[in-house]
Design a protein around this nucleic acid. Structure first.
Lengths: 152, 152
DNA sequence: CCTCATCCTTACGTTCACGTCAACTTCACA
DNA sequence: TGTGAAGTTGACGTGAACGTAAGGATGAGG
């Protein structure tokens, strides 16, 4: 059985797959951005699953798009971390509805927090985009005027 | 005659108006992000017009929204710089239409470059926003299910 | 089993984007 | 005309986010 989904990746592979370096991965782990993968079977080498690669990419993506510090990002991801735990707990059927509700509300709060950040930035960017488009429109119009008078 | 529009601002005033520090302003000037205001009447103090404040705010805004290094930002603003010069030159009527055309095309190129950057980021952010909204939707649904079974 | 690429930790180095301090000059105002 | 706040140019300091080098352990292929 060598089906896909259970390959054990080494840190160098992960780095290449995510487009970064081993150093950065260790650094993120040190900061708590990535789980400290306490599984170091026999040797001290870190091993990763493809899911971990996705997680890393997501971290890099958020860093890029939200433009926050790694510390702030850590807080934002604590949210995601919590959501993972929540999902795990919610999987089981035997959770008190009261507890379920609490967990879901908590998850919602985390998501809303991220959404707020994202929407704020998105709005600002949209505004900037509109301004640029408008300016470009004016330039184009002037070019057309010019063409009308003295065509190439 | 003390009408608005010709107040001479000092670097500290500018800093407060733009929400930053004198140090940053000097640093930006040193990097070439702000024009080196060669006008230092008698004393060596920098003087600014309200327009310069706007310029500074714009720089800060772009830095924040585009998340680029100050060097890259400088290149992007060389564009804007050029546009300012272009606008000045275009104001005059006695410019060869050929030259006008050239200037306008150049300006258009600069704008398009900025637009490309902005639209790329905006698209990425929009994608992220959609994902978050979708996730939130699922959470909400689960909450509604819960409410239906065991209302508060 | 040997070897060599890859990994480990530790630690110091580097770049960016400023902060801060020193020594001095200039401006605003009583 | 003094005097305190604000400005000037160096210069060095700093936090974030890694890069890089040292010295040694580990793992995969021949």
């Amino acid at each position: 059985m060598s089906g896909p989904g259970n390959e054990a990746l080494r840190i160098g592979d992960v780095a290449k797959l995510a487009g970064t370096t081993p150093r950065t991965i260790r650094y993120y782990e040190e900061l708590g951005l990535l789980p400290q993968a306490p599984e170091r079977p026999s040797g001290g080498h870190r091993l990763y699953s493809p899911e971990e690669v996705e997680r890393l990419r997501e971290v890099m993506r958020l860093k890029e798009l939200l433009g926050v510090s790694l510390q702030e990002l850590k807080d934002l991801l604590a949210a995601e971390e919590a959501r993972a735990a929540v999902r795990a707990e919610l999987q089981r059927e035997d959770v008190h509805p009261e507890r379920r509700r609490e967990l879901l509300l908590q998850a919602q709060g985390h998501i809303d927090r991220q959404l707020e950040l994202v929407e704020h930035r998105a709005a600002e960017l949209a505004k900037l985009r509109e301004e640029l488009l408008s300016t470009r429109g004016r330039v184009r119009e002037r070019l057309r005027e010019l063409d009308a008078l003295a065509p190439a």
